[in-house]
Design a protein around this nucleic acid. Structure first.
Lengths: 335, 335
DNA sequence: TTGTAGGCGTTATCAT
DNA sequence: ATGATAACGCCTACAA
């Protein structure tokens, strides 16, 4: 139905090859005249090249797969935008793969992306990347870059911040503010990112000679409603604490809401901190003290690395690290 | 490099056709034995079908294009998630096309989606869809559904809410609360959605015998920072108003921030309203009174309609309408 | 129940 | 400077 390169060739009275040449700017070996004629006809007949056919022969599409846990968490749209903007610059498009924090969906998506012969994959899992997935990713010979994951391997492309360091900064700040009983609302136990940040919490405490109170640590999916629920648990347990540090900003918002709901004032009665520096931290009352992760930039960088790898295979697989930055706002008070 | 259907056929000592048959569950005409043998080999060699090749011959991929203005506006991830979830259910994937509110990018993306032979397009523009775009969409014979747009045509697939009605409800509520000088922070002048809601504002006012004060109406991109800036303008102009109705929630948040920044209390001194019922309206202080749009459901429905159309062309192109619902919270007071 | 062969729209190789 | 032709991996009549 649609007009093909063949049609164009006929109209222009040239061979398919020639048309293909001008279409791909292989100007070498095409007369200026024929070139112009072909371009005119292309214009006239509104010809659009068939990327699928092209993909079949070149064995590569200009599509990138973007695997992220949850597009509904405002942290990820930032990454997505960075990836998309950069990808577009280089002429790539992205297939969005939201995994809803389900390992099964992640693996499923990897398979699908392979089926589609994507040029590369940007993989941002909330889980510790396991050997199966890793192998699945590695054996398919599509290049991939990991976002915020697997910080212990030096040989794969990665973009990350050190969550342990970031959380240490935050907890240390809390300690400086004279907090000694700091509750911690963590992400899921099997989350790589969550484990890292939790480690930062422990380390910071130990470093300051403060004992870690296990009963002050709660685990759950990194959502607002879970922040709410886990704060409720904390409150119910009658445990004593003057601050709640949360795995991410969304959970912190949930904590804030539960606290307010109980008539507990933040930061007067209890201090609260988040992580990610998502914009919602700036619109709550009080504004939430948090740690910045340059999500947009990380997205850009991930895409850039990936594309560079795609187009020039000899690029080395070196990770890129971003510094987490403490953002002091209004949700912590000195006691 | 990768294992193909041909390889499988060889290993199994059958023809390509037979393999293809079992792969596509055309169980008719394949012996249970060969079937099993083939499946085993497929498993063993970790065969993944090449969707690109398949797409070339069937002239259709299982990819949907999702065109949205800005994934960073929390309203759109809801839609995206609805679309993605539903698409996945039916075995489709989506290419994310963020247009950043640029008409040029919209058109560009439509071309790209055509190139990729997507099975269908979900188009959510902030602009009034113009004849060019419309034609571009219509002539390519890929089915498409419009989200929140072009409410005046009955013959194209669409999912929408009536922004005019929604805003009327909201403004009427403001009037009931005894507000007479209601400023309005609108989206861009050339935005279809913005025009509709603005019309609702005007209608509601007229309906209640209140004169529309043009100097109380400001226009701009629908972002938080613009809500902030336009509120600043409003304040600077010394115009008199007791309420600010905003085109969307993000702008309302911006207004809230500017107002607070100036020491103006909401809703004590000035009332503020949003639109969309994005979750941020529930975490500000005060919580923002707004109008609900069932974004997730709309996304689901859009995808469902589209896929139904793709798989069964005779489906009629009837629009689906969702009701906007007033959500009364804390940012409006009776004066 | 199974196989043969042609073709989808492009690129790439090798001629001319 | 240009063209003919063989892939690419798969589906789909049509045969057997």
């Amino acid at each position: 139905m649609a007009v093909t390169i063949k049609d164009i060739a006929q109209k222009a009275n040239v061979s398919i090859t020639t048309v293909s040449r001008v279409l791909n700017n292989k100007s070498k070996g095409v007369g200026e005249e024929t070139r112009k004629k072909i371009l005119d006809i292309v214009e006239e007949y509104n010809y659009v090249p068939n990327a699928v056919a092209k993909g079949l022969v070149t064995k590569k599409t200009n599509i990138l797969g973007l695997i992220i846990p949850d597009i509904t968490n405002p942290y990820y749209p930032e990454i997505a935008k960075g990836v998309e903007d950069t990808a577009n610059e280089y002429g790539y498009n992205i297939i969005l793969c939201g995994t809803n924090n389900q390992l099964e969906k992640e693996n499923n998506y990897i398979r699908i992306l392979k089926e589609h012969y994507v040029a590369g994959i940007i993989y941002n899992s909330s889980y510790s990347i396991n050997e199966t997935t890793m192998k699945q990713l590695a054996t398919t010979n599509v290049p991939f870059v990991l976002v915020e994951n697997d910080a212990d391997r030096k040989d794969i492309m990665r973009v990350y911040t050190d969550g342990e360091v970031g959380m240490e900064k935050l907890i240390s700040y809390l300690v400086e503010m004279a907090h000694k009983h700091i509750a911690y609302i963590s992400g899921p136990k099997d989350s790589y990112t969550a484990a890292k940040r939790l480690k930062g919490y422990r380390e910071a405490l130990m470093h300051h000679g403060i004992e870690v109170e296990e009963h002050l640590i709660k685990y759950g999916q990194p959502t607002r409603s879970n922040g709410y629920d886990l704060t409720k648990e904390l409150l119910r347990s009658k445990a004593k604490f003057t601050a709640i540090a949360c795995f991410n900003d969304l959970m912190a918002v949930g904590a804030l809401q539960k606290l307010r709901h109980k008539g507990i004032q933040v930061p007067l009665d209890v201090s609260v901190t988040g992580y990610d520096n998502v914009y919602v931290t700036k619109i709550t009352t009080p504004k939430i003290t948090t740690v910045e992760q340059p999500a947009y930039d990380m997205g850009c960088e991930a895409a850039r690395m990936l594309i560079e790898k795609i187009e020039n295979n000899k690029i080395p697989n070196s990770p890129i690290k971003f510094e987490p930055k403490l953002k002091i706002r209004e949700s912590v008070r000195k006691i």
